[in-house]
Amino acid sequence: MNYRIYRKFKNFMFLVLTLVSALAVLIPLFMIIQFVLVQGASSLSLDFFTQLPKPVGEVGGGMKHAILGTIYIVLLGAAIAIPIGVTCGIYLSEFSKSKLSKTLKMTVDLMSGIPSIVIGIFAYLVVVVPLKSFSAFAGAIALSIIMLPIIIKTSEEILKLVPNHIREAGLALGLPRWKVILFIILKGSVSNLLTGMILAISRAAGETAPLLFTAFGNMYLSYNMNEPMASLPVQIYTYAISPYKDWQRQAWAGAFVLMVLILTMNLFARFILTKIKDKKGI
């Protein structure tokens, strides 16, 4: 009898242990959301989206330049990383018998483990130093390096999900391999591939470290990719560590906007996905 109670007690304790761990994961997540929501949303105003920063001491101003800058740099980075990444994923999934592909796979795994600050320094040395200027372009390069391993890995895995008999069916129709890959395998996986891209973009959009040494940031609106450009993460960082109350308040607003931006991107992509899935016919 005693033994049975002891056994039940052990069982119960184990349940409590797993439950506590689960809560321990949830609590910080909810706290982040709550902090950013309460602090950020309350500091938000229309000015935040439409105004440029005011000089120190003056209250008000916004982060229009950083919001647009982030979108600009991230899209530029994606434009570099997506074609290379997807093509690379095709190579790994469709022609994966060569030695090169083994090396490539290992490189991709290593790449995804490189700290983002190291990528920032790398982009600094490779782009900023030779061009003698911080630039949005350098920032885009750094972000594209962050996106690449994610896009390559997801593309490879998604294409490998396509069963082999689909490839054979295409080849048996007398279609060259490249057409089978592009117009049958890839076409059938578009929606899944997009998910991988969005994953990569949202990861890169929140990065601060690689932009500190590359896009650097500024206080005015710029669309010149050869010049420093502001971005939300860097702007948040700069404002958050400043001693000014108003800037700190704006940093919260920035964090809120960044979160919402990434979230909207995800939702928007999902919306496109369903559109693609619904689109049928010739």
């Binding site: 008999h165 689909i166 295409g170 010739i282």
Partner: peptide, 9 residues
């Protein structure tokens, strides 16, 4: 094995 995400046509 019809091709996925493709209409009948």
């Amino acid at each position: 094995n019809p091709f996925p995400s493709m209409s009948i046509l």
